[in-house]
Structure formats: structure tokens, C-alpha cells
Design a protein around this nucleic acid. Structure first.
Length: 604
DNA sequence: CGCTTTGTTGGCTAT
DNA sequence: CATAGCCAACAAAGC
């Protein structure tokens, strides 16, 4: 039987490893490669749309080389297909399985329409390493919620399938694509203006879209055997001026590159070599992708908080000003602002840079819902991938998968680890480029003269920090604690929790409050050992200080030293021990509000 | 793939 | 030479 096939491209914008496309070409006399452009359904920004158009042009070019063409049709699939089936005399429709809930709904509708028109439907899995349905079935229909769990499930399935051969001219022997002279005007790939995008709005064309670019990039990376084998994601730098990771993610998102092709190419490079392992290796990265795809395919309302069974319910603030400042790179934290600028202009940022800004927006500093961040990433990232985007926002906001919410990224310290001089900031926030390294991460701390010399006054040319990280992150830690406490059927928060966010731990060991003021006598262990010098004995032996109790009845306030302090007058071990000497404080219950940091922490 | 504070260790210098 | 003090580097704890 000779079919008239439509292969419907959505993701999977490639000829290699495209089993559904091969199925379309089998026993086929007439092939229509189709892409349906539905601009109203896309949240993608200008850079991402350019990437898509690149990919479509590349695909059309590749199809032309083997004697076919791409048909780009505007509209929504549910409305477009009936007329296409009719006009093209279609008997078979093929497409790649898309696991996203909205896509599945769309595809179910289209499959129904096809059945009504007597059109056979063939769907093939090739966007993920494994058939997510199979993985879910292995796990009693539920998404594995840890990476380890996924790994053990996949271990029973064995390695992923090998990629299917690329479509070639030979596959299309006797198969014809009917093309009019008016093809370009009727079905051509549009440009940005036609999509309602301002073409002057695009950034540098660093990552051109398409299968050809994807395979070229893959080839170049696979040349670097040592780099591939030693790859460990946490050791790559978010501040690198040229990407320290593969930047294959945009190509994987659109399916310009097959994940199975990538997997097996890595496997080839690994052969006979010592190499890193999941989760940090490059194979490990592809498994993370699989992890979130599996989660996104089965967890209801995966991209929302409400109605999402794995998501911590948090009382995020509605704060459009903060959200806007974050999006536009105007937070006053240079590292955050640099990352957001790179995102807006180039459409790709390093994974750890995403960590830093996602944490900052949500649980770290601004306490804005991760759903808002997700929408911004959806628009600005070339690789915005529904499952990965939602999954990682859940992760970074501490809403699911990741529960150690007290691990907060510092907008100041994190970037310094890999970029002490702030070259990354200087590149993306050039107004700060002349600040000395000492102040580049915290320009507001620079003395006026330094700011003047740098040609940038904080508060005038560059914003003051919109929040004080130290204060905001501590407050948010408390709010996360509340969210977690509400979640479980655990007992109500212990009294201690009130202290710990704002008071020195040593406060807690004071049984009762004293009536007046008291001598604080540092103590230290006796050193009778044989070591020539007792380690840890540096604290001065005879320092005494006066403490009193202010408005906070449990936190001692260091009033003054009884003797002029030496250089290191009051090291903490002494203080800890000294607190034991204090008379017990009252039993009244202080709240954080009556116990501000300043009262509890004199300049000790 | 967290940060900060606190604690330990060994090297070094001045006395 | 023994000792006190300082420092950097690292480890551990606690949030």
C-alpha cells in the first residue's frame, strides 16, 4: 500500500534519529513534512523565536537536499488538520511522542480528528532516552522523586535505544513531495517580523538554531575526549565568559539534536577511558533531563504550586516591583544583575547561574513565587523546556525534590568562588567595570571616592540593593520553616525555633535572666598535655566584660570590657563557656520581633 | 550544586 | 630553645 503521509514536526526538528519521520516515509508515495506555527500559543521571546526559525530554515534546507520540502502552516493544529487531510489526500499521520500534558491533550484531539478522516496515526518515542510511560509503569505509575530511584528503574531497562538512521534520499525513493512554485509564499519559513517580533530586539547570534548547528556543535565537543571524560557539572563555572558547559540544551529542547544520539556519542568517547559518572557526568546530565521529563509527564499541575502534589505550599509575596527588578537586572546585586542581563541578551546562562538567580528570586531573598520566575525563563531561555523548567524551579525554590532549604546561595559569595575579580560582572554590567575587585560584588560598600573614581555612584547610576541579603535570607529561612512545619503532621514548632533565626546560639544555653548586670568571665580548657603549646589557648586569659539584659530578656548584651581589650579580645570559645557562668535568665518567651539582631549581637 | 562561623592544624616570626 | 601570637588553609558544625 502506498500512503500519503504527513509527518508533523513539533519538537524533533531533525532528520537524524527520527523514527516517526522514517515511518512516514515507509511505503509512502506522497510526503508532506509539516510544521504548524501557532504564535499565540508561544510564550517564547525574540531570541527563542529566532532560534526556532533558524531550526525550521535548516530543516527545510535539509529536506530540500533529499528532494522534499518543509510546509510551514499558520494556525492551531486542531483547526488546521481537517483541511490539510482533505487537501493533501492524507492516509497517514506520524509524529514524535510529546509527554507534556498540554501536548498530549492536543495530540489526543488531533489523533481523534485523524481517525475521523480515516487517517492512520503513528507515534514514536524519540525525544527522551526512554519511553516515560514504561518508566512510570515500572514505578507503579508514579514518578520517581529521587535521581537514585530513577537510576535503579533505568538499570532494569538497560541502556537507551540506539538512534534510528537519519532520513536520506534513499528512504524517499518513489516518494514525492508535491511543491508549487508558490511554496515559499504559501508554506515558507517566516521571519521575525511576520511573527510580530521586533528584529532589532535580538541579541548576538551566539547559538544559531537547527540540526546542522547542533551536530556541528556536538562533533566539536566530542573531539575533546579528556574534557568529556572528566566533565563534572559542579566543577564548571557559572561565571565563565565563554560557556563552560555544552550549550546543547537549546538543541535538545527543540529536538535539533537527538538525546539518544548525544548519549551514544558520549558512550563512544567513554569507551576504554576512565570517565566521570552520573549524576555529575554528561551522561548524568541527560539522566537529569529524563528525571524531570518523567516527573512532568505524570505529576499533575507540575508547573504550578496549587494542585501540585509534590509542591510545598508556600505563602509567596506578590511583589511586582521586586519581580521586575529581578527580571531587568536591577536588583543592586551585580552578580544577579549580570546573570539576568546575560539571560535577556544571549538566551543562555550556566546552570549554576540559574541556581543563583532562582534562589534569589524565591526562597533566598525576594520571596517571589517560583511560578513567576518560571514564566520569565520560559520567555528568555533558548532552552526553556517545560518539564525541566518547572522541575528546576521546584527544586531551587525548595518546593520539591530539594529540601535543605537552609542552603542559600549568597548573591555576593557564590560568584566569587570562580571569579574573584568579577570579570563576568564587568562584561554584563559594564557600568561597574571600573570598580576595584574588592567592591565589584558589593559596590554599595565602596567609599564615595572609590565610586567616583569608578565613574558610578551607587543609588544614581546603579541601584542600591533592593534587599539586604543577610536580613532577607534569615527571615525567609524562618518562613520556609513555617511552610515545612505546616506541611507535615509534625508537632508545632518548638520554642527554640523562634530564637535560632535571630539570636546567638549561646543565648539558648542561658537558663534564666539575671536581675542586673553580670561579669562575663571567659574560660578555657586546661591544657595539661605534652604538646609544646596548648592549641586553642589563644584567647586572653584575664579578659572580663560586663553584660546586661536589654529589651530582650534572654539575650545578654555586652556592655563594655572591664579591661581594654586586646586585639582578639573575645573569641567565641570563651564566650560560649562564659555563658555558663551567667545567672539564669527569666523564663519569658521572647519573639523574634522583640529580639532584633542588633540587640542580641553587640560587636562581639 | 551553600554560607558563615567556629575550630584545628601547621608554619612562621619575634622574643 | 621554648613560647606566645599570628596567619592561612582546611575541616566541621549549624543554620
Amino acid at each position: 500500500m502506498q500512503h500519503s503521509s504527513i509527518h508533523w514536526f513539533r519538537k524533533g526538528l531533525r532528520l537524524h534519529d527520527n523514527p516517526a519521520l522514517l515511518a512516514a516515509a515507509t511505503d509512502c508515495c506522497c510526503l508532506h513534512p509539516l510544521f504548524i506555527l501557532n504564535p499565540s500559543s508561544s510564550q517564547a521571546g525574540t531570541n527563542a523565536q529566532r532560534f526556532l526559525l533558524d531550526a525550521l530554515r535548516d530543516l527545510d534546507g535539509s529536506l530540500q537536499k533529499i528532494g522534499s520540502r518543509l510546509f510551514v502552516v499558520r494556525g492551531c493544529p486542531e483547526e488546521v488538520f481537517p483541511s490539510l487531510f482533505h487537501a493533501w489526500g492524507t492516509t497517514r499521520l506520524t509524529f514524535e511522542v510529546d509527554t507534556e500534558p498540554s501536548a498530549r491533550q492536543r495530540d489526543a484531539t488531533v489523533a481523534k480528528l485523524a481517525a475521523q478522516h480515516g487517517v492512520e496515526v503513528i507515534q514514536e518515542v524519540s525525544h527522551t532516552l526512554y519511553d516515560t510511560e514504561r518508566v512510570l509503569a515500572l514505578n507503579e505509575g508514579k514518578a520517581p522523586l529521587t535521581y537514585k530511584r530513577l537510576q535503579s528503574l533505568l538499570a532494569t531497562l538497560g541502556p537507551p535505544e540506539k538512534p534510528a538512521p537519519a532520513l536520506t534520499q534513499e528512504h524517499l525513493q518513489g516518494c514525492h513531495t508535491p511543491c508549487q512554485a508558490s511554496h515559499d509564499t504559501d508554506y515558507g519559513v517566516p521571519n521575525l517580523e511576520e511573527l510580530g517580533q521586533d528584529p532589532t530586539n535580538v541579541g548576538p547570534h551566539l547559538y544559531p538554531g537547527g540540526e546542522t548547528a547542533a551536530l556541528t556543535r556536538l562533533d566539536a565537543l566530542m573531539e575533546r575526549t579528556a574534557w568529556v571524560c572528566s566533565f563534572q557539572k559542579p566543577r564548571t563555572a557559572p561565571t565563565s565568559l565563554s560557556p563552560s558547559t555544552t550549550v546543547l540544551s537549546p538543541y535538545l529542547k527543540f529536538g535539533c539534536l537527538s538525546v539518544r544520539t548525544f548519549w551514544w556519542r558520549l558512550d563512544q568517547v567513554y569507551q576504554g577511558q576512565e570517565h566521570s559518572q552520573p549524576p555529575t557526568s554528561l551522561h548524568g546530565q541527560l539522566l537529569w533531563r529524563e528525571f524531570f521529563y518523567t516527573a512532568g509527564a505524570s505529576i499533575p499541575n507540575f508547573d504550578r504550586m496549587v494542585g501540585n502534589p509534590v509542591c510545598l505550599q508556600v505563602d509567596w509575596d506578590n511583589n511586582p516591583q521586586h519581580l521586575h527588578a529581578w527580571r531587568e537586572g536591577q536588583t543592586g546585586y551585580p552578580f544577579i544583575d549580570a546573570i539576568m542581563t546575560q539571560l535577556r541578551t544571549e538566551g543562555w546562562i550556566h546552570h549554576l547561574a540559574r541556581h543563583a538567580v532562582a534562589c534569589f528570586l524565591t526562597r533566598g531573598d525576594l520571596w517571589v513565587s517560583w511560578e513567576e520566575g518560571l514564566k520569565v525563563f520560559e520567555e528568555l531561555l533558548l532552552d526553556a523546556d517545560w518539564s525541566l523548567n518547572a522541575g528546576n524551579w521546584l527544586w531551587l525554590s525548595g518546593s520539591a525534590f530539594f529540601h535543605q532549604y537552609f542552603r542559600v546561595y549568597s548573591p555576593v559569595a557564590f560568584g566569587k568562588k570562580t571569579d574573584r575579580d568579577g570579570a563576568y560582572i564587568r562584561k554584563y554590567v559594564p557600568i561597574l567595570k571600573d570598580f576595584p575587585a574588592e567592591y565589584i560584588y558589593e559596590p554599595w560598600k565602596a567609599p564615595r571616592a572609590v565610586q567616583e573614581r569608578a565613574g558610578c555612584l551607587v543609588g544614581t547610576h546603579y541601584p542600591q540593593p533592593i534587599v539586604e541579603h543577610g536580613v532577607a535570607s534569615k527571615r525567609n529561612l524562618g518562613r520556609m520553616k513555617v511552610a515545612h512545619a505546616r506541611k507535615g503532621n509534625k508537632s508545632p514548632m518548638r520554642h527554640q525555633a523562634h530564637f535560632t533565626s535571630s539570636c546567638h546560639p549561646s543565648c539558648l544555653s542561658l537558663p534564666q535572666a539575671p536581675s542586673e548586670s553580670h561579669w562575663l568571665v571567659p574560660q578555657w580548657p586546661n591544657h595539661k598535655g605534652k604538646s609544646p603549646r596548648p592549641r586553642g589557648s589563644e584567647p586572653h586569659k584575664d579578659i572580663q566584660a560586663v553584660v546586661s539584659y536589654g529589651s530582650c530578656t534572654t539575650c545578654p548584651v555586652l556592655t563594655h570590657f572591664a579591661q581594654p581589650p586586646c586585639i582578639n579580645p573575645f573569641p567565641s570559645p570563651s564566650l560560649r563557656l562564659a555563658t555558663w557562668l551567667l545567672p539564669p535568665p527569666q523564663k519569658s518567651t521572647p519573639t523574634p520581633s522583640t529580639c532584633p539582631k542588633k540587640v542580641c549581637h553587640p560587636s562581639i
